[in-house]
Design a protein around this nucleic acid. Structure first.
Lengths: 207, 207
DNA sequence: CCCGAACCTGAGCAAGCGCTTAGGGCGTGG
DNA sequence: CCACGCCCTAAGCGCTTGCTCAGGTTCGGG
């Protein structure tokens, strides 16, 4: 398999969604949901953005909710993958935490449309679908909590309330998706750098 | 004027809204919007929670959007008042920042239903109404930024990026409204205390 | 005792919603 | 050349939405 053959699956956003029409509809839905929210978006709007008729949507997806679920599932998988990978790099707990925050924030800023849908439209999902997504969230939580625990054990961190601090760190990263603006002054990389520094200061032991 | 006469206006939430029927409708709307979001909430649902017919809503409010605007306006005023008052207490920049974060977080946790509507349903507002609310937000921003600047000047804080850190501090506080759960282990006071400590560590100069 | 204002309801309208269905073009294997 | 399966559209169905309106109830002032 050459790199060119790989391209759709690896490099292009949502390349894992096939066929092409289904991908175009999903990309259009992400855009619309991010701008207006799930409930304010109509199936006609989604189809229109994809250059298709409203009926085309129901060839590729059973309901509007299934579309949201596909987006949430793939998006959460991606975010968790980014976080997990980063938490393995960086050596010491401090380095690993910095890498984790840097990558996670970069993802939430760079893909803020996807992140906004994934993080803020959860309660439009059905009961079972939401439960599935919540399980993925708990795994993100475990990654950060694990790093903090390691740092406390090694004495590099001073964190009296590991659970609460885990919550705060993740909350800080996730909320980037809400306020980040492409027109703004900061690039995703810059925000990631700033946040990694701020979080390190939150947890580091004073020498 | 006695304290008893004052009670509705000062102590009871939304006591400033009169007459009684308008207040009941507004409280019902806050509840519904917080649970399901603005667009997922019907006027029939709001009226039903208030124990009235759908038509009653339109005697007190011109549209559903006006209801959201009233909630947003009063809620933002309250939040800004809490933040401003706290930023005047505490003496040193460090004390003032701790007071500000503690109070602001306590409000977002204790009144998380109101805060959720106020912070996350902004783009359901009309153009002018949103502009009005955004102006109030910029004033919250100015309060935090002012404290940080004072602390940097006095040497008590070490903050390379005042704007970015202001953003992060406010983002951290606001996002409490999203995840805070009354059934959870933490009281609003405890979260406020934890967050005040975390934020102080983010900005303090090392001795 | 009655009047008028304030407030509320039952019934319902026009519009827009999610979704379905019947049918048409089009590329492919035989 | 046909027949089949895939993908799409035009039209529209049943329902819910935000909102309206004519009519009834309640209540303080004259």
């Amino acid at each position: 398999m050459t790199a060119a053959q790989d391209a759709t699956a690896e490099d292009v956003p949502w390349g894992e969604v096939a066929p092409e029409a289904a991908r175009k509809l999903l990309v259009a839905a992400v855009e619309a949901f991010a701008e207006q929210g799930y409930h304010a978006t109509t199936t006609r709007d989604i189809a229109g953005r994809a250059g298709m008729s409203p009926a085309a949507l129901y060839i590729h997806y059973k309901t509007k909710e299934e579309l949201l679920h596909r987006i949430s599932r793939i998006g959460h998988d991606k975010a968790l993958e980014v976080l997990s990978a980063a938490s393995g790099r960086g050596g010491s707990p401090g380095g690993r935490l910095a890498e984790a925050v840097r990558s996670f924030v970069r993802w939430h800023a760079g893909r803020h449309d996807t992140a906004r849908v994934v993080q803020y439209e959860l309660d439009a999902l059905s009961e079972e679908h939401r439960a599935e997504i919540m399980a993925l969230r708990r795994r993100s939580d475990a990654v950060v909590r694990g790093i903090l625990r390691d740092g406390v054990e090694s004495g590099e961190f001073d964190v009296p309330d590991v659970s609460g601090t885990t919550l705060a760190v993740l909350s800080l990263c996730i909320d980037v998706a809400r306020w980040f603006n492409v027109q703004g002054r900061r690039t995703p990389e810059e925000v990631g750098e700033l946040y990694a520094d701020l979080v390190l200061r939150m947890v580091s032991a004073r020498p």
